[in-house]
């Protein structure tokens, strides 16, 4: 196979995959312009109900507040998570010993229990320390995740120890090495981590719904849940709402993926 045919094959496979991947999103956009009856009838052509759906949605849910809340919580959660977990992932790998490896195992286990079973104990704890109904209580359980720690731990493995040693000889402190060398080098890992953390934070909904007693703290996923719970569901309006909810993560990824550049770091370990 020549280089050209290989590239052509890649194009065909990738474009096909991309089309299959995007199809539901396009359908969502089309559905947002149709009436409820047409949406569930499977109509695939755009309609004229977009403005009506939009007005209905505004009348039904305070989506601007929902978007504001969602952005507020997701951004805070993403920033804090990334900082805490990249520090930990780096620490677990660069200073690894058998204790830290064992601790990593324990941390991994903490994600293996369905959250449903932890809700009642967690609720008791939060109530005991008066964190119910608070922003901190909202985001605290999902700040530190084994997944992110492990992601940064595995990316730190490809970070050359020689660079660290050299920096130490230059007199850089351990924390400075992390900030000045690891963070800029691991741009692509950070890009991936930011996207998925934002996405998870954006969709995070059941715990906040349980502890927040305040309708002004509703986020977009909560509002979508509200839209589907009535005797009558307006699917056109619903599709508009889910489309709006999907957009931020998609746009964020589009910006973040620019950091995936081939071999920028110029370094392979091993």
């Amino acid at each position: 196979m020549t280089d050209k045919t290989r590239t052509l094959c890649s194009y065909i496979v990738l474009i096909l995959t991309a089309v299959i991947s995007v199809f539901p999103l396009i359908w969502m956009v089309i559905a947002a312009t149709n009436s409820s009856v047409d949406v569930i009838a499977g109509k695939l052509t755009p309609g004229f109900k977009f403005i009506e759906n939009y007005q209905n949605l505004l009348a039904n849910q305070d989506i601007y507040r929902g978007l504001f809340n969602s952005f507020k919580y997701s951004i805070v959660q993403t920033v804090v998570s990334i900082v805490i977990c990249s520090l930990a992932g780096y620490g677990f790998e660069v200073y690894h010993d058998k204790y830290k490896d064992a601790l990593m195992g324990v941390i991994l286990m903490s994600m293996m229990i369905p959250f449903v079973s932890m809700m009642v104990p967690l609720f008791r704890m939060f109530s005991a320390v008066n964190l119910l109904n608070t922003t901190i209580g909202f985001i605290l359980p999902s700040l530190s995740t084994p997944f992110l720690i492990m992601l940064f731990r595995s990316s730190a493995r490809s970070f050359p120890m020689e660079m660290i040693e050299a920096a130490r000889i230059d007199g850089l402190g351990e924390f400075q090495i992390f900030v000045k060398m690891f963070v800029p080098t691991m741009k692509s890992t950070y890009a991936a981590a930011i996207t998925v953390t934002f996405m998870n934070a954006w969709n995070n909904y059941i715990w906040p719904k349980v502890i927040m007693q305040d309708s002004s703290s509703q986020t977009m996923p909560m509002m979508i849940s509200n839209l589907t719970s009535g005797y009558f569901t307006d699917y056109g309006m619903l599709m508009l709402a889910v489309f709006i909810t999907t957009l931020p993560t998609a746009v964020l990824f589009l910006f973040m993926q620019k950091n995936f550049r081939e071999g920028l770091t110029g370094s392979v370990k091993g």
């Binding site: 991947s21 999103l25 569930i40 619903l238 999907t246």
Partner: peptide, 22 residues
């Protein structure tokens, strides 16, 4: 590449409600 990557990433960001219906 940017567009292709984004398209292929999109499914996991697509709302569950919508993708279940489709």
């Amino acid at each position: 590449k940017g567009i292709l990557r984004t398209c292929i990433f999109l499914p996991c960001a697509t709302s569950l409600v919508a993708y279940a219906i489709i």
